[in-house]
Each structure stands twice: as structure tokens, then as C-alpha cells.
């Protein structure tokens, strides 16, 4: 028993420092190579005031750091939102897109891409459409009128299908020389669009949403029970469900608006956390956020450094994530909600 507790503490410490370690290591990887130790020196140089290589400063602060910050935020955010949806719908297959939010946000972004390449406008359009998708889902599903969570899921499927069609429509009418490649590339998801200005808009939103989910992590346990049981434990179900849906939507839509649609993370990482820690969302949610952040940083580094040209992140999350997931699944025998 003691031994198990010690192992778990050890595991938690490792998972806790993993995102920072991943960031420091990955910031040095690329065509201009910097050792982790140097990276740390460069990252800390604004505080310590030590003289460092100006080329390194440029590579780290201007090129790589915004991407890494974005990857950290998106990884943590999508994991948190996936975990929340899985508990909310008591369904291990729920993803951040279950309510049609990611598809809605994608439509907003590609629609904006028809008219402009201004990232800021694209981001706003994605966010607005993501929220609209949530509103549509709630309206169809009758959330707040006590018709049960299944109706909300069905509503999400409908909204998702509609926005999927709209995305196709946009691709169909887009100028195949100019706009279509931009749209297609955008839909595959990439951190390469990271700018400090974009981050300034997106990260606080992800932070607020993920922060709310983090604070509600114990309530997520109760939410995954039967409806009557949860109410009999004193929960105001309608209010809590709406709050969680809103928070998770904020996170998902912001992520999509910053870097496009990135699949798998919201499903794979919460399950990994569950296999390591059991069912208690008090542990899974923070562990998942740390794991997701680290995973996304590695994926992004691979996507920019593995080959001469950039590989879209969604392709790598599936290609790297799936075998890793299967390995873990076989080793632990899987985890239930």
C-alpha cells in the first residue's frame, strides 16, 4: 500500500514537471540547435540578465516560444475539455467536439479565410461560430428544460453535421488557387500561426475555461452518475451542466481559433490519465492537462522539425498517438469511466 502511494507520488512529480521539461527541451530542437541547458539560460536571460547568444535569443523568443506556449495551452485545454465532456455525458468516447463546437469554430475560421488572411479576424470568427454552435446544440437538445443529456448529444450531432456541410460548401466555392490550400491546411491544424498577439487573445480564454473545469473537477465525478443520483447529492444539474459546457466550449473554440482542428488529444490524453490514475477526476483532470500540454509540445516539435517542411499537427497526433495509445491500452487493460 505504502509502496503504491510512493509510486503514485513519484509519477505525479514526473507528470508535474513534464510540461516545463518538454518546453525547455523542445525549444532547442530545430535547424538552429540549442542544448537544453543553453535553452534554459536563454529563457531565463530576461530575468538573470546574463549575456547570451543573440541568434539563440531570436530563435527562442521570436520563432519557437510562441509556438510552444500555444502548444502547451492547446494541449492542456483540449485534455481538460475532453475529460469534462466524458464525465458530463458519462461516455468515454465523448470528445471536445461532441457538442459540435469544434466543427462550428472550424466553419467560422474557414469562412473568414475566404475574405481575409488576418489571423485576428479568423480567430474571432472561429470563436463566435463555436459559441453559436453551442447555442444551437443547447436549443435543439433543450438543455435546461430537463430533457436529459442524450438530447444534448443528439443536438450536438445535428449541429456538427450542419457545420461540416457548411465547411464543405466553403471549400467548394473557395478559389482553388488561392483560398483552398489555405483552408485545407488550416483545417489540418498547426501551431505555425502562433503570434504573441494571437496568444494574448486566445490564452486567457483557454485559461479561464480550463480554470473553471479545474475548479469543478470533483463535481465532474458526481455528474457522471445517474441524473437522479446527482440531483439527490445536492447538485443543481442544469446550472452545473451549462457552466461546464460553456467552459469547455470556450476552451475548444479558442483552441480551434488559434491552431485549427486538432483531433485525438481530447480523447487520448484523458484515457491515458485514467489508465494511470483510475477514475477520480480530481486526479485525472490535472494529470491530463499536464500530459496533454507535454504531448502537444512534442507533437508540434515533431511537426516542425521532423522534415524540411511542416507536417500538420492533426496528422501527427493520430500517427504518433494511436500506436502509443494501443500500447498503453494493452499494457493496462484499458480504463473505464
Amino acid at each position: 500500500m505504502k509502496q503504491m502511494q510512493r509510486n503514485r507520488l513519484f509519477l505525479s512529480i514526473i507528470i508535474g514537471i513534464l510540461p516545463a521539461a518538454a518546453a525547455v527541451i523542445c525549444v532547442g530542437i530545430g535547424r538552429y540547435h540549442i542544448s537544453p541547458w543553453e535553452s534554459l539560460e536563454i529563457l531565463l536571460s530576461p530575468i538573470t540578465g546574463r549575456e547570451v547568444d543573440p541568434q539563440g535569443i531570436s530563435a527562442v523568443f521570436n520563432v519557437r516560444l510562441p509556438r510552444i506556449l500555444l502548444a502547451l495551452a492547446v494541449g492542456a485545454g483540449l485534455s481538460a475539455s475532453g475529460t469534462a465532456f466524458q464525465a458530463l455525458f458519462s461516455n468515454p468516447l465523448a470528445t471536445p467536439d461532441t457538442l459540435g463546437v469544434a466543427t462550428g469554430a472550424s466553419f467560422g475560421a474557414v469562412f473568414a479565410l475566404l475574405f481575409t488572411r488576418n489571423i485576428f479576424v479568423v480567430q474571432l470568427a472561429a470563436l463566435a461560430m463555436g459559441l453559436l454552435a453551442l447555442a444551437g446544440t443547447c436549443l435543439i437538445g433543450g438543455a435546461g428544460r430537463g430533457r436529459g443529456i442524450l438530447m444534448v448529444v443528439l443536438g450536438g450531432m445535428v449541429v456538427s453535421a450542419v457545420f461540416e456541410a457548411l465547411v464543405s460548401l466553403v471549400k467548394f466555392v473557395a478559389d482553388p488557387e488561392e483560398d483552398l490550400p489555405a483552408i485545407t491546411y488550416w483545417l489540418m491544424g498547426s501551431m505555425s500561426r502562433a503570434t504573441y498577439r494571437g496568444l494574448l487573445l486566445g490564452i486567457p480564454l483557454i485559461g479561464v475555461g480550463a480554470g473553471i473545469l479545474f475548479l469543478l473537477r470533483w463535481r465532474l465525478n458526481i455528474l457522471s452518475l445517474q441524473e437522479d443520483e446527482a440531483r439527490a447529492l445536492g447538485l443543481d444539474l442544469k446550472k452545473l451542466r451549462l457552466l461546464i459546457m460553456a467552459a469547455a466550449t470556450l476552451v475548444t473554440a479558442s483552441c480551434v481559433s488559434l491552431c485549427g482542428k486538432i483531433g485525438w488529444v481530447g480523447l487520448l490524453i484523458p484515457h491515458t490519465a485514467r489508465m494511470l490514475y483510475g477514475s477520480d477526476n480530481r486526479r485525472i483532470l490535472p494529470a491530463g492537462m499536464a500530459l496533454g500540454a507535454s504531448f502537444m509540445v512534442f507533437i508540434d516539435t515533431a511537426s516542425r522539425a521532423a522534415t524540411a517542411s511542416e507536417i500538420p499537427a492533426s496528422i501527427l497526433t493520430a500517427l504518433i498517438g494511436a500506436p502509443f495509445f494501443i500500447l498503453l491500452l494493452r499494457k493496462t487493460g484499458g480504463a473505464r469511466l
Binding site: 475548479l215 483510475g278 473505464r336
Partner: peptide, 20 residues
């Protein structure tokens, strides 16, 4: 669900705790 017994029993405190 696969919550442990202790985690399950602990949920009984829910009505006595604030939302966050």
C-alpha cells in the same frame, strides 16, 4: 462506474460543499 468505494462514498458530502 469504476470509482473506488471511498471516492463513491465521498460524493455523499456534495450537498455540504460549495460549488468550486
Amino acid at each position: 462506474l469504476s470509482y473506488t468505494a471511498l471516492e463513491m462514498v465521498l460524493m455523499g458530502r456534495s450537498a455540504r460543499l460549495g460549488l468550486f
